[in-house]
Simulated assay, not measured.
Amino acid sequence: MPLPLAVTSGEPAGIGPDITLATWLRRRELDLPPFYVRGDRTALAARARALGLKLDLADVDVDEAAAAFDRALPVVATGTSATALPGRPDDSSAAAALASIRHAVADVVAGKASAVVTNPIAKNVLYRAGFQHPGHTEFLAELAASGGKVPQPVMMLWSPQLAVVPVTIHLSVREALAQLTTELIVATARIVVADMRARFGLKAPRLAISGLNPHAGEDGTLGTEDIDVVAPAIGILRNEGVAVRGPLPADTMFHPAARKTYDCALCMYHDQALIPIKTIAFEDAVNVTLGLPFIRTSPDHGTAFDIAGTAKANPSSLIAAIRLAARMAATKKT
């Protein structure tokens, strides 16, 4: 029996519980791989009642989760209770969400689960509780630290139609420009290439790298960063044998014909990458963290407090995240 996926609870007042319950109920119809929730069974049972769902929840140890999956949604306790009502985060929210992430990562590191699939967290709720990281991605990198060295996490948004990576992530535009360097572009691209080979099964990934400025700088007339910062990175990567094109004007990179020419687009800042994929594949895009010693995927949406507990949440992105995590885990073993 394959190792199950560890699914985190996410923000307990958000839609994470809703989409997790809905996904498990469709497990046979969609032929989903076994997964379990790291969280609070009492909180999940309360959400199921609020949604009017009839299903069984099983308190299990990690080793029992895969065997229990077909008959009941396996829940592996974290020891931290979640008392928040739908749409109303409370003092238990941050502790419950973070405990779930820590335990799920520990399960994968211990070889008891094949990958981590994280439900959405509310960063503003975590910040009020003293959370020190810009987001999920950076927290996972800290949990992956070995010998005091924290790996560089790379955020990929993946869908069947398009995969994108922002070189700078959760920064203001001003700060993103200040931190963008040739070295950062090269390091990010190397991680993307390595993981696309090891975890996506692509022997020779093709990268398209956007320019920073409009029209990729128009030969320096709209800014010299594409000449001084981006182009040297592309030269280094080409010398290493990477199939790479750029710097390309970002406004012409994402139409259907252009997307056929590359496997992943590297963009210079957050919105340059995320606007196109969320336009093209809003419901089935998956957030993937590259550069970690374990596999992590996540739905590409937030906590949606306004619809939590209403049965309006769409589980499509979580389903896609579960399927992609299982695919990456299987690819890694081959």
Results as ranks from 00 to 15, higher is better:
A320H: 10
E175H: 14
V116M: 11
K332F: 13
K149M: 11
G10C: 01
A208F: 08
G135Q: 09
A141W: 13
L292Q: 09
Y36S: 08
P256N: 14
V76G: 03
V286L: 00
F131E: 03
A65E: 04
T83V: 07
V286A: 01
M268I: 02
R327L: 07
P160Y: 09
I101F: 12
A67N: 10
L53R: 03
I15L: 01
R190T: 08
G87R: 00
F200C: 05
V165A: 07
K123Q: 01
F282D: 12
H215I: 14
Q132F: 08
Y262W: 10
D300Y: 10
P17I: 00
A65C: 08
V165M: 07
P34W: 06
P134F: 05
I280G: 08
P166Y: 14
N119Q: 14
R327W: 08
S100Q: 12
E283A: 14
D228P: 01
G217A: 06
L85Q: 15
L73N: 07
V150K: 12
G235V: 04
P205E: 09
D226Q: 13
I19E: 00
M156Q: 12
A6K: 15
T137M: 10
D306M: 11
A231Y: 04
L292F: 09
A178Q: 12
R49Q: 15
G52D: 07
R71F: 04
V244E: 01
E218A: 11
M328K: 10
A122Q: 04
A321M: 04
T252W: 03
K278Y: 12
R102S: 07
P33V: 08
A258P: 05
A321H: 05
A65I: 11
P2T: 09
A257F: 07
P153N: 06
A326Y: 03
